[in-house]
Nucleic acid binder design. Structure first.
Lengths: 253, 253
DNA sequence: TAAGATTTGTTCGTATGTATC
DNA sequence: GGATACATACGAACAAATCTT
């Protein structure tokens, strides 16, 4: 599997990306972690035998991926920087900018994952966490009086799910659920308001949240799963009513 | 919500970053899509009133995120580039480099998602796709004779799942499953081989693949779901036996 | 094949900004 | 405030890739 004679002429990597790769390798080889210092610019210029401009382009590449953070001044320079969730979500959103996700796609996944998350959290939450959830659920104790208000409630509800995903131990599961909540929130923020508030669905949704909290407190994981599953059905109906389209835009940075 | 007096002194965005943002905005505002041309370097130098070096750093940022592709020569320059799955997976992997994912975390998700995917594909595959799956499943018709051979079979099996995820219409679901297959493949590639081949599990795994293909062809979605669920149990046992640790390394680019 | 034109790629020297001591 | 150490930014020049004729 050599790269010789490969018909797929790979587009020759420019020097900045080669340097960026070299730096990444350097970091991994020494098993550096968040906060550890990298050599400064002039050291890299010597080390890799390239000019300042090239080194700087390489550093911008790593910075764009969230792998390093750079500071000026004495004691400054670049350090390894923990990649943030926000940036990662943004990068993932950029990918789906080109992929035409539908509401149905997102709900196919939510219906599988959210009940699983709820079940895994039953009996595992601290009283502070429970309190936070209650606060979110109580944020809108009355049915929405206008489409605008319903929108706000919908967003608060998504924040509830996002918060829940933070409480789980499974970082992958949490990330994906948080990502979907973000997409749906943006969708809700930007969408047209042409539907009147739906009282029946509102009532069910709120009821679900309260029942869910109760199940989480009592540690009944099967019940938590069931409630969340019903809730997803309701939420899906609500979203599909709006015939919303996924907002196409770059985010990142 | 002004940025004045914000206690959270946000780390002043450098000029390349600002230029990169401006370019992104420019692209979105015109609703450009994959392949459309951006102004060339000198035009940007004029347009933004910055130096060549600054423009180039901005372009490297966008390139690192997969948003543009740059070519030299006449008619060259930068174009909007569809963000590739590979790059996106790599960027996501960078995030989880810091998050200590466990095998259990990944399988909690696989157990939820893979059966769902299987069910959604029942009766929807073309004969070419079925053939490809059969080929992958038939790649190792005999039980592994060595640990090394078992490793190869395990990787082939993951390729089977990856392929399956490509066939679905749900891009988000496909992406996540593909991502997990990739992580597990790397894990398998780099892990120590201290366990002897496990014939019983091998037999079950292969049986599952064949039964699954059959269910997919006949369009029995409930059966497809069930088989995949059992298969996930087996696969999880196999992985956990190895006590593998998630490989920590940067990928990307 | 070869030459010329176009556009990105890379270097260097210099100057400026910024944080620490 | 001044000295120091570092990143940030500019501009001019030259190198390399690639398209056209």
């Amino acid at each position: 599997m050599q790269e010789v004679n490969s018909p797929k002429q790979k587009p020759r990597r420019s020097r900045p990306v080669l340097v960026a790769d070299a730096i990444k390798e350097w970091v991994v080889k020494r098993d550096l972690s968040s906060g550890d210092k990298l050599p400064n610019e002039s050291a890299m210029i010597d080390q890799f035998g390239v000019s300042k401009g090239t080194v700087r382009e390489a550093l911008r590449i790593l910075e764009a991926q969230g792998l390093i953070v750079t500071k000026t001044g004495p004691g400054g320079g670049s350090i390894v920087g923990e990649v943030s969730v926000e940036r990662t979500r943004a990068l993932l959103a950029n990918y789906f900018y080109f992929q035409d996700l539908s509401i149905a796609d997102i709900y196919q996944m939510r219906k599988s994952l959210e009940p699983e998350l709820a079940a895994s959290l039953a009996g595992k939450l601290t009283s502070e966490q429970i309190l936070e959830l209650r606060n979110l659920a109580d944020q809108y104790p009355q049915p929405a009086k206008s489409a605008e208000e319903e929108k706000e409630q919908h967003i608060a509800s998504l924040a509830f799910h996002s918060k829940l995903s933070d409480y789980g131990k499974n970082k992958l599961l949490g990330f994906i659920i948080g990502f979907m909540s973000q997409i749906l929130t943006e969708l809700t923020l930007y969408k047209q308001l042409y539907e009147p508030p739906n009282y029946e669905l509102w009532r069910k949704g709120r009821e679900h949240q309260l029942q869910l909290i109760e199940a989480l407190v009592s540690g009944n994981s099967n019940k938590a799963r069931e409630i969340m599953a019903s809730h997803m059905q309701v939420a899906e109906t609500l979203m599909k009513q709006q015939e919303a389209q996924i907002v196409r835009r770059f985010i990142a940075e």
